[in-house]
Design a protein around this nucleic acid. Structure first.
Lengths: 350, 350
DNA sequence: TTGAAAGCGCTAACAG
DNA sequence: CTGTTAGCGCTTTCAA
């Protein structure tokens, strides 16, 4: 067996020589274009198979200015919320013959910029940015350089990018209503990243809903937490130290809530009897926590599907100005007390 | 403000014209190569900044035959075990100026083939395949077409790919020893994908260790499970139906164990008093389960780091024939009973 | 139906 | 130190 050197691949010219035709004819066959005689087509296909030819996407992209590649940015694959979105986006992309370039920016704004630039350099056909942390101005400047873009979980200027998002203010309001209905009055908040649009929207929901219930929510009971289990653990300890009387922890997301549950367990504080805990996202593991977590569920997989579908539309020059907003639902589990008052429309789940 | 059309990007020629030099000089400046006068260099840099020039990686790749891109395949980003590996690999890749092309093959052999071919078409500089499900022959055939390759969690022919893996047989043996030491005798096994190398190695560990303890493990007490929470739930129910007397469930991984815990909870079977449950991988959520899961921990992040480091070595033509095998450790939590006999070296954790 | 020529944006090799 | 020439593998354009 001869050694296969990947450096010298089979090219169109090789196939053409083998089949005794010109490169153009082979190109036509490869791309299923008309204008090739049936006999010739069969002969060329034989040569392609015999030599194991595969088109060089790089070369094709240089000329055709399309790479059939889409760039997808997520803040952190390690947060189970995002892989769901990836799956949704991926399924649609693959069904349309596109390849995904997935980049994980570990909640780092600099890496977000680097990723967007790397996509640009690679001439991807479009980009989807999930929960970007970049300030809008800089983000739009970078997205504008792309053929098409969609932002997930954030509003955007429709001429620059489409937007697919969840109504986080409403989600948070449902959570607060539920806490109030189950008797919580002295809420503590483990807020998310300052530059997160979702975090600001959720905070808005908390503010408005607590205000409507006449509850007091002083700044001392709001702590910024890294959006991770460790972040939640640290923030929960800090908050309990500041105010041992809180009767509920409202967490930015389920990871933060997981950290809070750990901290409370170690501090010997009973959940939900002494302190209720609520998360956000309903990651697949939220129902496995100790105790299972009350949280907000959105159709995450669909979020990814919608985003990719919208991107493909925009790449085709259609669908500008169409935004998608999904409504989330409350999922009540054991990390909050049973309802004292009458239910108000939330879904009760395992 | 004029409309920016991403279709006509700034090229080397534009910069050259702007700076009044040749494209070659600009190329030298862009690539930080010597042979450019200081004055010229400054002038060119000014032009680059003024025009917002970014090199076209596609064109560069066509000529240079290097894309500074690495393909990474994981079976399922939705399984928290894999994102940890991705993070490790990614950190090393970025530190060396490479971009990752991450593809998720959803445990589908066909998509595994498609991903490997897509990487080939895109002329990536190297590939890492995590826990591939493809049969070795076909896998090697595909990997051979790449400049360099590394397989994670599976042995491979050193001339074709490097290998970074965990000693799963030993890991499983530790788990079985622990179960036996805590009084379990009638084990049930929720085995993983038939084509998974890791699954076979783990099964080997179970076989050998139970045999050494003189335990009986008939085929009826071994069920193949999809490597997911749902798969584990279904498989656990099936196993309990077949043999209600089992006193331990040995699960392929932590997701399967999560499903088993759910099933047992719904069936009203107490864990660990009636049935002990063990997982494998120690995903970050395993300690949050109800009850917290006894499992096997490996340095997953390091696995990714080692894999990428090894790949970069192989891309440079070095390090052939070096394999890395990591030893995993036992993590005992509440899903198994307390030790009845004397401890045998495992790590006791929260 | 088929093919020849030109060029996408870049870099290697060589010349000045 | 700087520039010219050629060509990576493909597709677009136009001619046969």
């Amino acid at each position: 067996m001869t050694v296969f050197d990947p450096r010298d691949r089979v090219t169109l010219a090789d196939v053409a020589a083998h089949a005794g035709v010109s490169v153009m004819t082979v190109s036509r066959v490869v791309n299923d274009r008309p204008g090739v005689g049936e006999g010739t087509r069969v002969r060329v296909q034989g040569a392609i198979a015999a030599l194991g030819y595969r088109p060089n996407i790089v070369a094709r992209g240089l000329k055709a200015r399309r790479s059939r590649t889409i760039g997808l940015i997520v803040p952190d694959v390690t947060n189970p919320y995002f892989p769901e979105i990836v799956r949704g986006a991926e399924d649609v992309a693959i069904a349309h013959g596109f390849t995904l370039l997935l980049t994980n920016v570990i909640e780092d704004v600099e890496r977000e910029v680097a990723a967007l630039e790397a996509f640009e350099d690679r001439r991807v056909d479009g980009v989807i940015a999930c929960s970007p942390r970049l300030v809008s101005e800089r983000l739009e400047e970078l997205l504008e350089r792309h053929h098409a873009a969609v932002i997930v979980n954030r509003r955007s200027r429709p001429d620059i990018a489409g937007s697919v998002r969840i109504d986080h203010e409403q989600g948070m309001r449902q959570l607060i209503r539920h806490l109030v209905a189950t008797g919580c009055r002295r809420l503590g908040v483990l807020a998310g990243p300052v530059h997160s649009f979702a975090a600001r929207e959720r905070m808005l929901g908390i503010d408005r809903e607590t205000r409507e219930h006449g509850l007091d929510l002083p700044d001392e009971r709001i702590i910024v937490s890294a959006p991770t289990v460790d972040g939640g653990e640290i923030a929960a300890r800090a908050l309990i130290r500041r105010d041992p009387e809180v009767d509920a922890l409202v967490c930015f997301n389920d990871l933060v809530a997981a950290g809070a549950l750990s901290a409370l367990a170690e501090l010997g504080i009973a959940v939900p009897d002494e302190v209720a805990v609520v998360g956000y996202d309903d990651i697949p593991f939220a129902r496995m926590f100790t105790p299972p977590l009350t949280t907000i569920r959105a159709a995450t997989y669909d979020l990814g599907r919608h985003a990719m579908t919208m991107l493909l539309e925009r790449m085709a020059g259609r669908g500008r100005g169409v935004d998608i907003v999904l409504q989330p639902e409350l999922v009540v589990r054991a990390s909050t007390r049973h309802r004292l008052a009458a239910p108000s429309g939330g879904v009760i789940s395992l």
